[in-house]
Design a protein around this nucleic acid. Sequence first.
DNA 1: ATTCGCAAGAACTTCGATATTTTCGCGGAA
DNA 2: TTCCGCGAAAATATCGAAGTTCTTGCGAAT
Lengths: 257, 257
Amino acid sequence: MDETATSAPAQGRGDDATEPTFATQSEAAYHRIREAIITGQLAPNEKLLLDGLRERFRFGTSPLREALSRLAADRLVIARGQRGFRVAPISEEEYRDIVNMRLLLEPEALQRSIANATLAWEGNVAAAFHRLSRVESALDRAPDDSGGIWEHENQRFHFALVENCGSPWLLNFITALADQAERYRRPAVEMRAVPMERLIQEHKALFDAAMSRNATLAAELLKVHIRNAASHLSKALFHAGDDAAGGQAIEAGNEQA
Amino acid sequence: MDETATSAPAQGRGDDATEPTFATQSEAAYHRIREAIITGQLAPNEKLLLDGLRERFRFGTSPLREALSRLAADRLVIARGQRGFRVAPISEEEYRDIVNMRLLLEPEALQRSIANATLAWEGNVAAAFHRLSRVESALDRAPDDSGGIWEHENQRFHFALVENCGSPWLLNFITALADQAERYRRPAVEMRAVPMERLIQEHKALFDAAMSRNATLAAELLKVHIRNAASHLSKALFHAGDDAAGGQAIEAGNEQA
DNA sequence: ATTCGCAAGAACTTCGATATTTTCGCGGAA
DNA sequence: TTCCGCGAAAATATCGAAGTTCTTGCGAAT
């Protein structure tokens, strides 16, 4: 296999998706490989042979190694001295950890976002919600997120919600976790592990609470949303043939919504 | 200037400080430069000339670039395509952000650590506290943390407290923030900006609360401790000649201890 | 006096080759 | 049969040079 698709200032498509162009090979390689890992084109725990990557992505060794170094710092890749690189493995345990971190960080960020609310931010959230709704209803009728479009819009909606929190570090952590989480979500979505209908409702409720600037309610809804999605996902991915039991310890959870 | 000090399996010193040895030049460079940035040997915002670094640290270009790539992902270095690297700048604004994140994460981690308390963990905390106390009382008499020994033991104590939280991601974030914070703390310590006496008291109280497994109290003490240290530091670094005013918005702060 | 463009120099990136380390498989000894 | 060690093959890590891109300073034109 051989997938070239890096530089060359791609010019206007009807979309708003501005095909990014990178200043260096290293950057291009970083984004390309990162994408491949997140979407699962490079499987968890897969050995990353430099020759293989050179052949497949058409980057030189130096850009590749720099990209892999950055990805190692992001924890998407594991680097072992003199033993090369592999895709970071996934596990139920780490997934629980990630979800718990999201439960800690995202509601907090959402509350701050709402506290700092501006017209521009509301606009962004509304736009993101609108796009997501469109995609969701389409997906509800014909479930198939082939291009990862739902995945993409879902991310953008969630990010728009917290974007206004005013803390670069908080956003940094949240996006790092979102990237990690996507590795688990992708396969689950393809398995239709999460009932789309309920997702749509939760997104709507979340959106309404945010727009009415009810910070505590919005935060609570977000928690419930994350927990709910995670528990479905966890069941589908890690307990395929299990009988009842519930998805283990995902933070005690004071249900109320 | 020229400071070589990297590989070569350094053999036993009386210390417990096992001089780490690295499998690759890249790793050595990463740790060496990281240290230099954190301790301020490389100043905030300083341009990092590849030739300069090669000359100074005696690494080749490739290891250097890989190290800098990783450091960029850690946010200790800023990389601009085709324009090389510089040390990440510092600012009062970012410092506030970092402190607020620590206030969010560390108390949470401490509570979890206590909830998971084991004998081994208690032992580690006690050991770290003991070492810190020794250093602190010495420093209280003759204030001069030349080798950064207090800095080191202070870090170890704080890390020991949260280490048992059971969440690799939480620890990951906490250490990233601690690294960043150290860049601000170092100069402040040298200015004797923080009264050692109060620090000693707070550490003692924190330690006692942790050992008696009073999670909520310990968490609260930790918050107060972080806030207190940060406010002194902020005043010294950013408001040198100011009259009264208070160190701006570092999370509302429900004092009680 | 200011702005613009160009050319020389400096710096960053990337390539290709080499040195080093690890991995794998095979054959011999216990 | 199992274990160990050795050597070949594979893979990683690093170097040094070449190719690009940026930066700087000077001179000409407005």
